[in-house]
Write a protein that binds this DNA or RNA. Structure first.
Length: 684
DNA sequence: GAGCACTGC
């Protein structure tokens, strides 16, 4: 961050500064303005008819009736997501079954269902319903079903041809989440299979907000692409004249340049990469805002990122006081998940923090990198939701041109073990050659299958990969395969009650709340739960204490426990327990004998084991790479000979997080062949 | 003695 305190950067930039230049005319980039619809008093029916999509309805229906596959490009505000399902239903298309509309996010599925139910004047859960994890608001009457894409994927395990459905609408396809990408293949296979078996055909409609749909069309047998105009307002794009070496400095300068020139009611949204730099820039902005020249209005700076408590996230929706400008510093949460009205200016640093995956090491790395062109347009679009807007890109037009067109689909950036297991549970005959729209590398696929083989979920027979009985059970849990495996092992150690809780704790965001300013208090409060057996048992102690006080909020505050995440843990635990019992497994508690819990984890998580070396460092046993105990672990000060860990985090070093103390013998027992050649130290 | 973009089953 800039430290030039004697001369606030804002003063360096007079109104009309030449920091930016306007983009050259780019056809198709400045989107046409289409009618206005800000009248909140008009009836729902009138509102529906005012949507841009309404005029296209007859043609659209004509096309959709005939086509088996269609790609639909609809700009923001076209109304496609709420209207298409209704049009189909009203026209009697796909009446023999349900119409599914998938969404990448829960909130979207829930709110869209609510909106459409309102438009149809029915109670939510009747004609129109939704299904997301932990919540199923549908009934036998439901015909239009909004759901998360992950939910449809889960349903497909029990019904690979998706026979309940006659139409599947895959919305927000341009986001290319893992779930959507797997669904592409699943619906395509279901279509073909239904055709072969002379079943009712399955219509698939892929909806995207971006123009890059060649891949979609090609994949779905060259299906036609239909365009829908939106109600996006024109956005003026500016680029910097020179490349910026310090995007944070550039963002700061731009905020104050706009602040000095624009009317105070025009809010600013800045896209940045993470919590730390957002909080730092927020502090700097507030400092500078205190010393602005006369005549310059005030500003309120609001950080926005996912780990912020909900109450603080809501601040972005509160209008600023009259004459005061709202400046929102946000991560990419504001690209899709959070929509803020009143944004006139977007400042795009051009950077994003994103996960990368190395199949060789199995290591995921979170790194700051350039956005894609599609992402840059998505960000710019946030300025034109109610009226025309401006987007200031903190990079040159040449730099923009050199950006990759689309973000690499997540399926090419993640560990595929869970995906491959799910595909096999769906009965896909040849998973190694699954028809992915964007095929992951063969190394990534091979490494995932090898991983599943080591867990005993699959076996290779004559070049064929087959699901084992264990693998089938593993797939029934909504968990990473190694967690599912650990749960399935737990009856052998008579500690399933505890394993179900710990796995639930490990599979949600941290339940530990660590405000840096109250570090000593946190340490003191946590001390009473700390176990020398490691983080797993420590978490278990916290969970047991939480249950003892029935989730008392005051207790959570005193003990620095995130009660929202803890409630989620309870829901996950209940779900896992239900699946566990359905498999007719014996649910027992080990009471205070937590050694059993550690044995079970050693057995289930042996792929994530590390060994203490003579020089005091650690080596991961599967890859032989140097790793270290993360300072947040309760085992940080100690030097156990063997541990299993939950995940590796690559930052300044390669850190193991969430550790469990284990014996070398246990690891050997878990996988004698695998460790026969890897363990150094003889038995103690 | 460190630091976590965002979803989702």
């Amino acid at each position: 961050m800039p430290h030039n305190a004697d001369f606030p950067p804002a003063k360096k930039f007079k109104p009309g500064s030449v920091f930016f230049r306007q983009e050259k005319n780019k056809p198709g980039m400045l989107l046409p303005r289409k009618g206005t619809n800000n009248n909140k008093n008009v009836s729902i029916d009138v509102q529906r008819k005012q949507l841009p999509i309404h005029q296209a309805k007859p043609q659209l229906l004509n096309q959709l009736r005939q086509l088996q596959n269609a790609i639909l490009i609809g700009e923001t505000g076209s109304g496609k997501t709420t209207q298409i399902p209704q049009y189909l239903y009203e026209a009697g298309i796909g009446r023999q079954g349900l119409i599914a509309i998938t969404q990448p996010r829960r909130v979207a599925a829930i709110s869209l269902a609510g909106r459409v139910a309102e438009e149809k004047r029915t109670q939510l859960g009747k004609l129109v319903g939704y299904t997301v994890r932990f919540e199923d608001v549908t009934s036998s009457e439901t015909k239009l079903k909004f759901m998360t894409d992950g939910m449809l994927l889960r349903e497909a395990i029990g019904d690979p041809m998706l026979l309940r459905y006659t139409v599947v609408v895959l919305d927000e396809a341009h986001e290319r989440t893992v779930h959507t990408d797997v669904l592409f293949g699943v619906v395509k296979a279901a279509q073909r299979r239904r055709r072969e078996l002379n079943k009712v055909p399955l219509k698939v409609i892929v909806m995207s907000a971006t123009m890059d749909v060649d891949l979609f069309s090609e994949y779905f047998n060259k299906s036609p692409v239909l365009y829908l105009e939106g109600r996006q307002h024109p956005i003026q794009i500016y680029y910097t004249k020179q490349p910026q070496s310090d995007y944070l400095q550039a963002a700061l300068v731009s905020v104050f340049q706009i602040h000095q020139e624009a009317p105070p009611s025009h809010d600013i949204l800045v896209f940045m990469t993470g919590q730390e730099e957002i909080e730092a820039l927020a502090r700097t902005c507030r400092d500078i805002a205190k010393h602005l020249p006369d005549g310059c209005g005030s500003m309120v700076v609001i950080p926005l990122y996912a780990s912020l408590p909900p109450a603080q996230q809501l601040r972005v929706f509160q209008p600023a006081a009259k004459g005061c400008r709202k400046v929102i510093l946000s991560t990419n949460i504001a690209e899709t998940s959070v929509t803020i009205s009143g944004i006139k200016y977007v400042i795009d640093t051009g950077m994003v923090k994103a996960k990368r995956f190395n199949p060789d090491s199995g290591l995921e790395v979170l790194a700051v990198q350039r956005v894609s062109k599609a992402q840059a347009w998505q960000r710019a679009g946030r300025a034109g939701r109610e009226d025309s807007g401006f987007c200031y890109r903190l990079y040159t037009e040449q730099e923009f041109d050199s950006l990759i067109p689309m973000t690499v689909p997540e399926i090419q950036r993640c560990n595929l073990a869970g995906v491959m297991l799910q595909l096999m549970a769906l009965g896909i005959p040849d998973v190694m050659n699954f028809d992915f729209m964007s095929k992951p590398s063969s190394e990534a696929i091979r490494s995932a299958v090898e991983h599943l083989e080591l867990l005993g979920a699959v076996e290779k027979k004559k070049e064929q990969v087959l699901l084992t009985a264990l693998g089938k059970k593993m797939a029934s849990f909504p968990l990473e395969p190694r967690y599912a495996k650990t749960i399935l092992l737990s009856p052998d150690y008579a500690c399933s009650e505890e394993i179900l809780s710990i796995v639930s704790l490990l599979s949600v965001d941290s339940v530990l709340y660590n405000p840096p300013a109250r570090r000593d208090e946190v340490l003191a409060a946590r001390k009473k739960f700390t176990s020398s057996e490691g983080d797993h048992v420590t978490l278990l102690n916290i969970y047991r204490a939480f249950k003892k006080v029935s989730g008392n909020k005051e207790w959570c505050r005193e003990n620095f426990v995130n009660s929202r995440n803890m409630s989620l843990v309870k829901e996950v635990q209940a779900q896992l327990r239900e699946i566990f019992l359905k498999l007719n497994l014996k649910l027992e508690s080990c009471g205070s004998d937590t050694g059993r819990v550690r044995r079970c984890f050693a057995h289930g998580m042996f792929l994530n084991a590390a060994e203490l070396q003579l020089d005091g460092s650690y080596l991961a046993l599967n890859t032989h790479q140097p790793v270290a105990i993360h300072p947040s672990s309760v085992l940080f000060q100690s030097k156990p000979a063997y541990v299993v860990f939950n995940e590796l985090l690559h930052t300044s070093r390669c850190y193991m997080r969430d550790l469990c103390l284990v014996d070398a013998d246990w690891l050997l027992d878990a996988a004698p062949e695998y460790f026969g050649r890897k363990l150094h130290i003889a038995k103690s």
